[in-house]
Design a protein around this nucleic acid. Structure first.
Length: 581
DNA sequence: GCCGTTTTCGGCCCGACTGTTTTCAGTCG
């Protein structure tokens, strides 16, 4: 079939990232690779009309996109490929690029292995290490070869990322253990966990203690520690038996706020802060903020003071991704972020009526006991036979139970909802008269994941058009660390959702966290509503809503656009307004 | 590769730690 459109923005972003990796291997100038990687990030996060920007030649007006990368993008857009990108792919075998993922191997060593020993795959690398060929290379040695083998083993065993709740659990275990040792004055987990990223690669723990040596020794004797990667005066790195890397940094009390900013990151955010410090004749590092030529840091009692010294408002950790937060802080426009206590109702929960583990009554009582004032039940619809989806008769029967239960539970509302499959053609899963009987409808994709983007987008847009659709559930169906989401033009979905007043769910299941927080700025700009939903299939899973709040914060989603922060009457009004009632 | 009202060339954040070296390059975050 002939395609009238060129590659999507996503494909171009992926090509830029791959080019960055490949340039890293072939080029002596690390800044070239960095420029490609930064451009990929910028374009990915850029919310304007991409097609128009490319076609009008306005790309270079975006900070970080110069002539070279604009040409790269334009060439891909018009011809479907970039000559430089293709050339690099010819030049560098895919196995060589994969070698960059081995911990301890960077571009220089990879290039040496490739050029000197003609190693072009992880397997060949393993063999060369075992046979002693790697140790003989100049600049390498026996220890280096051993480390490479260990790094490959790590890569093959776990792949290296963990879901947010897993990382959080390990972190609190470590903190509890550390507190059982030498006296600790301050202890904080920084890094991507503090930024509440949806997945975490390693943990950064920051401590102030009067006896650094003793704390470091105590740390490496934690039962879960498998290997000690490094142990120095201020930094101790270990790998746990589950594969997770943990860094413990020990600093002086006066250095703590600086270290907290530094180790919270992100790296890109830090680079911006440091360059900003430099512009002001200052040097920022993890130990302080130093006037040029001075060894004495300015005093900053906390993070706020550091940001203030750089003429910025304080930026919550969740926003520190260099996606516009620094500009916002410059203009006093850092958004107010949602707080977990603002959530008033639990929406999107499954019961034993379909594939949930808890009965409707147990669920309702648990939600009430947790302090919420309403529950929106949403079992599966009839097409979801694999999950015990409800046919119209069972829908009526469930509604009778809800009515009965509602009378018993004073001061608590139960809304009648359904998680309706979006059928292949984009229609909802019941006739209008059945749909009419619900207070709200969550429309979700549960099948036909492999449609081409254009068709999938049309399908979802059609589901949005139904006046019965209140919320679009887990928009992309991605499962973190397991499965990619469907091909979907989310920008078009957001635009239409904003026009129609359909909420886009933030599914708070830790595997989903879908819609991705990176769409937050665009959603904010369009005024899209969301609902932060646990998609609970058991009582404990009600607690997932917390991770959804984390994502709403990262997204900078305005609290007044989160419909389950409304009271029951407000939530009901939103649902009715959508239906035109 | 990108950027610039001190610059169109020469910068591009900064430090800890390791391993292979006799003073430093590479990697990492």
């Amino acid at each position: 079939m002939e395609s009238s459109r060129g590659p999507s923005k996503g494909q171009i972003v992926r090509a830029l990232i791959e080019t960055a990796d490949l340039e890293e291997v072939v080029s002596d100038n690390p800044f070239r690779s960095r420029a490609f990687r930064a451009a990929a990030r910028t374009i990915d996060a850029w919310s304007g009309d991409f097609a128009r920007a490319v076609e009008s030649g306005e790309l270079t007006s975006i900070q970080g996109i110069g002539k070279g990368i604009a040409d790269f993008v334009t060439e891909m857009w018009t011809t479907g490929a970039s000559a430089r990108h293709e050339e690099l792919r010819e030049l560098v075998p895919p196995g060589v690029r994969r070698m960059l993922d081995v911990p301890g191997l960077g571009p220089k060593k990879v290039r040496t292995l490739w050029r000197e020993l003609k190693i072009e795959s992880i397997d060949a690398l393993k063999e060369a290490c075992s046979e002693g060929r790697v140790a003989k290379l100049k600049g390498f040695g026996k220890k280096t070869a051993e480390n490479i083998l260990a790094g490959i083993g790590y890569l093959e065993s776990v792949g290296g990322r963990y879901l947010l709740p897993e990382a959080e659990a390990v972190a609190s275990q470590i903190c509890e253990y550390l507190r059982s040792g030498p006296p600790i004055e301050k202890l904080e987990v920084a890094g991507s966990l503090r930024r509440r990223r949806e997945t975490v690669r390693d943990l950064d723990v920051l401590a102030v203690t009067s006896d650094p040596q003793a704390l470091s020794d105590h740390f490496i004797h934690f039962t879960e520690v498998e290997t000690v990667i490094a142990q120095g005066d201020t930094k101790t790195s270990v790998r746990l038996v589950n594969g997770m890397a943990v860094d413990l940094r020990i600093v002086k009390r006066s250095q703590f706020p600086f270290a907290l900013v530094y180790f919270t990151g992100s790296k890109e955010h830090n680079v911006r802060l440091r360059s900003r410090a430099k512009d002001r004749g200052l040097k920022l590092n993890e130990y302080g903020l130093f006037p040029e030529g001075s060894a004495r840091s300015k005093r900053c009692a906390d993070e706020k003071a550091i940001y203030r010294a750089l003429d910025l408002d304080w930026i919550p950790p969740e926003l520190r991704e260099d996606l516009g937060e620094i500009e916002a802080a410059e203009q006093g426009a850092v958004p107010r972020l949602l707080e977990a206590r603002e959530i008033q109702g639990i929406v999107h929960a499954h019961t034993t009526w379909s594939d949930g583990k808890a009965t409707l009554e147990d669920l309702a009582r648990a939600v009430k006991a947790a302090g919420y004032s309403y529950l929106g039940i949403s079992d599966h619809s009839q097409s979801a036979f694999y999950a015990g989806g409800l046919d119209p008769d069972r829908v009526r029967a469930q509604h009778e139970e809800i009515d009965r239960l509602s009378e018993e539970l004073e001061g608590f509302r139960i809304f009648k909802g359904i998680e309706s499959d979006i059928r292949a053609d984009g229609s909802l899963d019941y006739s209008d008269d059945v749909l009419e009987s619900f207070d709200f409808v969550i429309a979700s994709l549960h099948s036909h994941f492999h449609l081409p983007e254009e068709e999938q987008t049309a399908r979802v847009l059609r589901a949005l058009e139904s006046p019965y659709t209140t919320i679009l559930g887990h928009a992309t169906t991605r499962l973190l660390l397991r499965r990619e989401g469907v091909e979907l033009d989310l920008d078009r979905v957001l635009v239409r959702a904003a026009e129609l007043g359909v909420a886009i769910e933030i599914n708070a299941n830790p595997y989903r966290l879908d819609i991705d927080w990176r769409y937050g700025p665009r959603a904010r700009e369009l005024g899209v509503y969301t609902s932060i939903n646990p998609d609970a299939h058991s009582l404990p899973e009600i607690g997932y809503v917390r991770f959804g709040v984390d994502m709403a914060r990262k997204a900078g989603w305005p609290p007044d656009r989160v419909i389950n922060t409304y009271d029951a009457a407000g939530f009901e009004a939103f649902c009715k307004r959508r239906r035109g009632a």
